[in-house]
Design a binder for these strands. Structure first.
Lengths: 196, 196
DNA sequence: TTGTGTATATTCACTGGTCAGTATACATGC
DNA sequence: GCATGTATACTGACCAGTGAATATACACAA
């Protein structure tokens, strides 16, 4: 497939890209709709032509992060050498590297759910929940393919370690926690292999 | 020690109590200083007599949650039957019960750090980080007392599972994740016993 | 080919309301 | 009288969302 010149992004895409940068960097409630419109080079009224409300924009922001994030995890997993445990651990180690970048601010999905904890039915939270379920289901499929008996439980525990490291590294600003989480994931998987 | 009639709470204490309820329930940025003052039955000017700024009030809110939270964890641990792994697991199971209460909204420290992720030096974040470090150090001391070799790493991994379950249960509203995290903690500790 | 209608896309200017923080004054007890 | 604590009333900034008008593009009839 030849490399194509990417078409000029639509106005809507530019708004979502601006929202992504600002919401991720400064949080949902810390960013005004005006600020997003400015960053996108568009008037606020135009933004409200493409999105019904700020809540709608928030949902679009998270929806835009879903696939790319999952693909990144899969790529880290696929490109890692070694057995299943090592490949899962590689996700954590790669994440630790990402977390050293000064612009890293944790997981956008988890941070949004923390910020909107008083609105459990918010569309953005549903998108975040679905994203994490996809990760968990992918892990479960990998474990099941390796004929591990507790594939579902194990996938859940790896997800818990992943989200724990997002939250903890955001708090302490110390990516070493991610490596500790990766070692724990490795130990749990190795253990499951032994029991098989 | 006789049970004492609790003295009438000071104005400052009433303000912190009001801030605790509102900030925990609705998030920092979602609650105005006016709302806290109203809830405390005090004018905003009085609130600003006792606190220098909203940021100062946020820090007081978290500082007030530090000791009680740690003591609760310790009580759950002490009162549980069984070995070390079972006692740690009991923390997760008790937490799952708490999380079923409709007012439960995750961990105030983690949610605040998520909301203030763009202000890494904020006093409230330092208080949250110190709180989690205390939990981790307590766990490490318990593991060291049991002569487990990787006490420090293990304590860190249990903390990661705990924070992961806070974040994940807040997102999915499903306390079963906490039980899965408790089982993972149990497995890691049991594993460490075996290696000792 | 040109004129006209219509849907899409965008702008400027505005509203009603909220928010963090403050100037000033009053009360109370030592 | 002075320190502590509380109240009323205000400021200037910001913010989500809107009304009304304008610009662009394209379909289709004259």
């Amino acid at each position: 497939m030849p490399i194509m010149a990417s078409p000029a992004p639509s106005t809507r895409d530019r708004i979502v890209a601006a929202a992504n940068k600002l919401f991720y960097a400064e949080g949902i409630r810390g960013v005004s709709v005006d600020a997003v419109a400015d960053k996108a080079g568009v008037t606020k009224r135009t933004l409200y032509y493409h999105f019904q409300s700020k809540d709608d924009l928030i949902a679009a922001y998270l929806a835009g992060r879903d696939q790319p994030n999952l693909e990144l995890f899969k790529r880290w997993f696929d490109e890692a050498r070694g057995g299943l445990a090592a490949k899962v651990q590689a996700i954590f180690d790669n994440l630790a590297t990402s977390a050293r970048h000064p612009k890293w601010k944790g997981c956008g999905f988890l941070r949004t759910s923390a910020e909107l904890a008083n609105m459990p039915g918010h569309p953005a939270i549903k998108i975040g929940a679905a994203h994490k379920k996809k990760f968990e289901a992918w892990m479960a499929a990998e474990f099941a393919a390796a004929k591990l008996s507790d594939a579902v439980l194990l996938a859940r525990q790896v997800t818990l370690l992943l989200d724990g490291s997002f939250a903890t590294v955001l708090l302490h600003r110390d990516p070493a926690y991610m490596e500790a989480a990766g070692q724990a994931a490795n130990a749990l998987i190795t253990n499951a292999h032994r029991k098989r």
